[in-house]
Amino acid sequence: AKRKAVTPGAGEHPLQYNYTFWYSRRTPSRPANTQSYEQNIKQIGTVASVEQFWRFYSHLVRPGDLTGHSDFHLFKEGIKPMWEDEANKNGGKWIIRLRKGLASRFWENIILAMLGEQFMVGEEICGVVVSIRFQEDIISVWNKTASDQATTARIRDTLRRVLNLPPSTIMEYKTHTDSIKDNSSFRNTKIAV
């Protein structure tokens, strides 16, 4: 179905891009093939201004209060949070693993950095994801071109700054091609020191 275009309201502060929130939840026993992933991922809203963002965000459950195997995704409008999307297929993501209890704060800070255009990498950012898992939570930042090392380095450094990460924090990068190959988001990553 065609959706009505989302635009900033009168007197609101426009964002550089419109962003769409998505939510997904998986029963761990079911196979995570592309079809079931696409069926499980639900578009929940699009925002075009700072004020629209806050109105929407304030009604969302905080990721730290979610249970089970679930994800919030915030992507530029028009980009599906899937490896196979045209905007993602040559891309990859930075991964930060968090101990339980930190996800809500990190999620908010990373969203604000993306909405405020703090990464300074042109059109490269596709979106951000918070993944709630049983033992740990994971924040990821997706960009368009996995092979562009200047861009990925700049994203990594911005993440360290906006999330105030200690220098010892392990950061991992994984290309979506590798994720498709081993059908896993967070296994077999490359560790950057």
């Binding site: 502060h13 964002l15 700072v50 109105r55």
Partner: peptide
Amino acid sequence: GTRIIYDRKFLMECRNSPVAR
């Protein structure tokens, strides 16, 4: 074109504006 950049402090201030609530 010009890029619309907001720092965290500004975005947090907008959170409390009447339009955002």
